[in-house]
Design a protein around this nucleic acid. Structure first.
Lengths: 417, 417
DNA sequence: AGATGTTTGTTCAGTCATTGAACTTAGGGT
DNA sequence: ACCCTAAGTTCAATGACTGAACAAACATCT
């Protein structure tokens, strides 16, 4: 997160201005149609004079743009439409995933300006974290060249990693990458293409949840459950990500489904991952485990996609063992998800990652369990949805999170210009 | 909560003032020793001139008071100490509990000015919610008389109820009271002693968590698990209560401990309540169930205290059946709590309600399960604590929540005066 | 005792962003 | 043409903070 200046800072004229600036910009950003200065004034409760003044600043900063005046329905002077500026500050989403490193450049409007990925150098080839960040640096260089070509200034970046981060950016543990205690900020600083950018680092599941959020209502509430070798979750309440005490919220993979169930790599018994993780599903389906799916092996990776298509094909053909395996994974998932819904008080579940691919076989069981186990079901029945972004959720979410912080603090982005 | 005016309101001069007013007041409130105007200035980053001006307003409003000047350690002009005003606006905590209705009047400083309780009129005697609120009204009248005698103005009240509230204050379901769809605001408005006060209504577990919060660091994070006929939990993260989408967060009582466990009154199987609820514990201990502990009976109540002392006595004597029952309840609780800690990313558990009384027999098992099942244990080992407030947590927490809102918005309380 | 230094609290002109009201601009309808 | 409506701008007034200078009150050193 950006230089978290305490919420307990004294306010002065300038803070009023930045607050209202952000407010005005949000009105422009959240509407699908162009808004006028008068719209901003009435929506926020400020004077038309103030709205005008704020808009002037936003125009000067190149964050919003004016359209040609268009007459309203009931006569009167035509309103000049305001929209986000296509050539305003752009943002970068980064991801170090199990199989690949990815990058994604978004214009201020949210449109994709550049997109690329490369396979992650594998540990078994002697390549450590530095090699992965080298690949990320290469992709970033290309993305920034693309930005340059469009005369876009890159305002910042966010990086998604699959693991537990401490607040200073250290990646404490990333089982599926085979990493432990990796100093992410140092590795970022070592890449010339990234060293001069403000980069925030966040958990992959959290950023995926933010990505999912950006595809729907801005104040949605849901639990995004992401399947894979592990099982992760991101919690969004009223449009805000729940982070928890250390930023490790939503660790659903090791929630207990059956206290005396099979032993898990974490040392406990009966964790969700042992029922609904990709490795467990493959084993139960009688299919060969993909490399790396026997979590804890240290080196992650493995061609997850190949195994997955096999699984889907078998399920489509109605292979009873496979279907039963998926349904059992679904009900275990449903038990854990029900607990999470009871605790977080949510009524929407979004299935992402491999669960998005396997949605048709997994979702009914999740639905069934939640309908029985969620206490508030009668007042707010649980909805189980499929993720709209699938595997790209995390990169896109990373970029979107930067976009959100630019829109939330437009004055921050103007100053350094 | 007070008329939640949207966070998306335009800021002007007055909002700067109220923000800084609240900031200055917080400095006075959170320090144990008197602070000076200069202290406020340096702590918040404002000028001494501004701090002075703010303090003047707070003095005029009767919210803070000046002490005699006291010399500092390194010479210089002595600082005039500022403290919360003992005779400033007072607040009222209310509770409709299973056994009793309670009231508690707190001075602005947090000291108790009045305290009383009365048995709750029972449904089996033909008394419905109206009777309970009548009893609450009587207590309130006495509390306000006590306030009057001290020349204290009562700024507001908060009511704790054990059940699911909708956002408009309707009590949707309170199994242990035997109530359903009770219109709390209407009942409050019908009581003359309460009709003229701003009263907020909240879940008992949530307010108990706030009460617990007020006994420790103001930015603590913990899960407060409250035992009783049911099992409730309140989640506090960085000093703020987690409420969830509808305000129903922390429903741990129906988190699944064993998917194929005993049937629960909620319709599901293996809910925590079936292992660690008071009824289940008594049954497992071979003791006679207290009236009402067979949850779902409709009319709640029952002399919980009597049964509890019997349980404690038997446990102290080392009765193996009782000790085993408690230890099994503890490990079921530990399983559910571990899940909650993984999801919420917390590292502190506070046991309250009956669990506070049974702490010595329950806590070790909770500790053991969390040490195995909480993923982040190695970086942030879980601490299991006993609640400092016990059964009074909810009333006190209710009053504290009003206190907090007065301190957070001092200008609100000045205007009507 | 007196001078010096230090810290607290106040006073006052200056600055800045908002408000509110008048005014200008630019259409639509009859 | 004339009136009506709504958008956007201009400008004096207001309110709250800043910064600097000043006054008050005490400790310490000579």
């Amino acid at each position: 997160m950006p230089p978290t200046r305490g919420p307990d800072r004294a306010a002065d004229h300038r803070s009023v201005r930045s607050h209202n600036l952000a407010l005005a910009l949000r009105e422009v950003a959240r509407a699908d149609v162009p808004v006028s200065r008068a719209d901003i004034a009435t929506a926020t409760g400020m004077t038309r004079a103030t709205a005008s003044s704020l808009v002037e600043s936003l125009l000067a900063a190149g964050i919003v743009a004016e359209l040609a005046p268009r007459a309203g329905p009931r006569g009167g002077r035509p309103a000049t439409g305001l929209v986000l500026c296509e050539s305003g500050p752009a943002v970068l989403g980064l991801e170090v995933g199990v199989d690949a490193v990815e990058v994604c450049l978004l214009r201020l409007t949210g449109s994709v300006a550049f997109r690329a990925s490369a396979p992650r150098p594998r540990s078994r080839d002697g390549a450590g974290p530095a090699a992965a960040f080298g690949a990320l640096g290469d992709l970033t260089r290309r993305a920034r060249a693309a930005a340059e070509a469009e005369h876009l200034r890159v305002a910042g970046a966010a990086l998604a990693v699959p693991g537990l981060l401490s607040r200073d950016g250290m990646l404490r543990l990333a089982p599926n990458l085979g990493w432990r205690d990796v100093d992410v900020p140092a590795l970022l600083a070592a890449e010339p293409a990234l060293a001069d950018l403000p980069v925030t680092v966040d958990n992959e599941a959290d950023l995926a949840a933010l990505g999912e959020l950006s595809t729907g209502a801005p104040d949605a509430s849901f639990l995004l459950v992401s399947g894979g070798i592990g099982v992760g979750a991101g919690v969004v309440v009223d449009g805000a990500l729940y982070r928890g005490r250390h930023g490790w919220g939503g660790e659903i993979g090791h929630v207990c489904v059956e206290p005396s169930g099979p032993a898990c790599t974490c040392g406990a018994r009966g964790c969700l991952e042992q029922y609904a993780g990709l490795g467990a599903v493959l084993t139960a389906a009688g299919l060969p485990a993909a490399p790396g799916t026997s979590a804890g092996a240290g080196d992650g990776g493995g061609d997850g996609d190949g195994v997955l298509t096999g699984l889907v094909a078998a399920a489509r053909e109605g292979d009873p063992t496979v279907v039963r395996a998926l349904s059992r994974a679904g009900s275990a998932l449903g038990v854990a998800v029900s607990g999470a819904l009871n605790l977080f008080d949510l009524d929407e579940v979004v299935l992402g990652g491999t669960y998005a691919t396997l949605f048709d076989w997994v979702a009914p069981e999740v639905q069934r369990e939640t309908s029985r186990r969620v206490l508030s079901w009668h007042w707010a029945p649980t909805v189980v949805r499929c993720s709209g972004l699938g595997a790209d959720a995390a990169v896109v979410g990373a970029a979107r999170s930067v976009l959100a912080s630019v829109l939330a603090a437009p004055d921050q982005v103007v100053a350094p210009g």
